Simulated assay, not measured.
Amino acid sequence: MTVSPVQAIREEHAYPLVSIITPTYNAARFIRETIDSVKRQTYPYWELILVDDGSKDETVALIQEEMIDSRIRLIVMPKNGGAAVARNTGISTAGGRYLAFLDSDDLWLPEKLEKQVSYMQRNDVAFSFTRYRIIQENGTQTPFVVPIPRQIDYNGLLKNTIIGCLTVMLDREKLGVVQMPNIRTRQDTALWLQILREGHIAYGIQEELSHYRKVVGSISSNKWKAARNTWRLYRDIEKLNFLRASWCFLHYGWNAWKKSVGQSG
C-alpha cells in the first residue's frame, strides 16, 4: 500500500497529524496569504485541505501553484453548495487526529498549531479555542483582541457565541464523528453547540494565535443578519422554546454589543 508523504511524516515522528479544513469561494485576494500562514507553522505535521466551492476567479489556479508542498490538497466541488458542504467534504477526507479550521481570508500566527496541540495533549482536552485579533480588510492590525473565557459549556455558548472558528481545534479520537449541520450560516456555532450538548467542555487558551480579517460586505460583518441567523439557530436547530430562546438572545445581544464597543474603542 502506498503511504502518503503526510502519513510518512506522522509515522516516522509519532506526532499527531492536524487536518486543516479551508473552504474557498472567490478567495483570490487573500488565499496566498492564508496558505502562507499555514506554511509558516512551527508545527510541521499538518495537512491543508482546501475545498473550492465553485470559485469564478483565480482561486483554484493560485492554490494549484502552492501544491508543490505535498501537505496541501485541493478538492474542487462540482457546484456551489455552501460552506457547510465544503467543510464536511474536507472533513470526510481528513486523515488527522486533530481538526482545525481556517477560512480563506484569515491568518494564523506561526506558533498556533504547536501551542494548541501541546495544550490539548498536556491537559487531555477534546475541544480548545484561542483568542484572536481583528485585522482590517487590508491586513492592518487593530488593537482589539477578542477576550474569551477559560472554559465554556453548552448553556454558556448559547448566551455568548464567542468561539472563533479560525481558532478551534478538535480531537476526533475523543469526539468521534465530526460533521457540521448542513445550514448556510452559523454552521460552525451549530457544531460547537452539538459537541457541548453531549457534555464536552470547550477550553479557551488565553493567547492570541490567530487574526480574523473583517471584510466589508461579508455575512459575518452584517450585524442584523448575524442576529437573525442566531435567532434561527436557537429556534430551528437547537429547538429552544420561545422563552428560552429569547433569554439566550438577550444575552447574545448584550455580549455582541460589548464586543462591538471593544472593536470600535
Rank of each mutant, 00 (worst) to 15 (best):
Q7D: 15
D171N: 06
V3D: 00
K214Q: 03
R213T: 13
R184S: 14
Q263C: 05
A190R: 03
A83M: 10
H200Q: 05
Y15W: 07
L17Y: 11
R244G: 08
T140C: 04
K174Q: 11
T167I: 02
A256E: 00
N80I: 09
V60G: 05
Q194K: 12
L17F: 08
V178T: 04
R232N: 10
I68N: 10
H13W: 07
S128I: 06
S19D: 12
Q194L: 14
G199F: 01
K56G: 15
N160T: 09
T24P: 05
R97T: 12
E66W: 10
E173L: 13
G164T: 01
G90T: 05
G176A: 07
Q179V: 10
E207H: 08
W192F: 03
V38Q: 15
K159R: 15
I21N: 12
Y154M: 02
V125P: 07
D52C: 11
L250C: 15
G217I: 03
E137A: 09
L191T: 01
I205Q: 02
E111D: 15
Q64T: 07
R97C: 11
Y203P: 02
K259C: 12
R235L: 08
Q116S: 15
A83D: 11
L158Q: 07
G54T: 09
M67K: 15
D69P: 14
K39N: 08
T167G: 05
L107S: 07
I134K: 00
L107Q: 10
M169T: 05
R197A: 13
A202H: 08
S220M: 02
S19N: 08
G54Y: 05
R73Y: 14
Q179S: 13
K79C: 11
R235H: 06
Y15Q: 05
L102A: 11
V117K: 00
R133D: 01
K225T: 11
K223T: 03
L48F: 13
T167W: 02
W46G: 14
P16L: 06
V216L: 04
T93L: 09
D106P: 01
F144W: 04
R213M: 12
A83G: 14
I49M: 07
I49Q: 06
R244W: 01
Y45P: 03
S264H: 14
D52F: 08
I152G: 06
Y98T: 13
G217R: 10
G199Q: 05
L243G: 00
I219L: 02
S128Y: 00
F127P: 01
D69C: 13
V117L: 06
A227S: 13
L107P: 03
Q179R: 13
V216E: 15
T42M: 11
Y43G: 15
Y98R: 08
E65I: 07
I91S: 01
I152D: 02
T167L: 02
G217S: 10
R10T: 10
Q187G: 04
T142M: 07
T34I: 01
G156R: 09
N160P: 09
E111Y: 11
G204R: 01
E173R: 11
L158A: 09
L250I: 15
K115T: 09
P110F: 13
P5M: 02
Q151E: 12
L109S: 06
R150Y: 02
R71M: 12
E238I: 08
F30W: 15
H200K: 01
T42D: 13
G95M: 15
V177Y: 10
I63D: 08
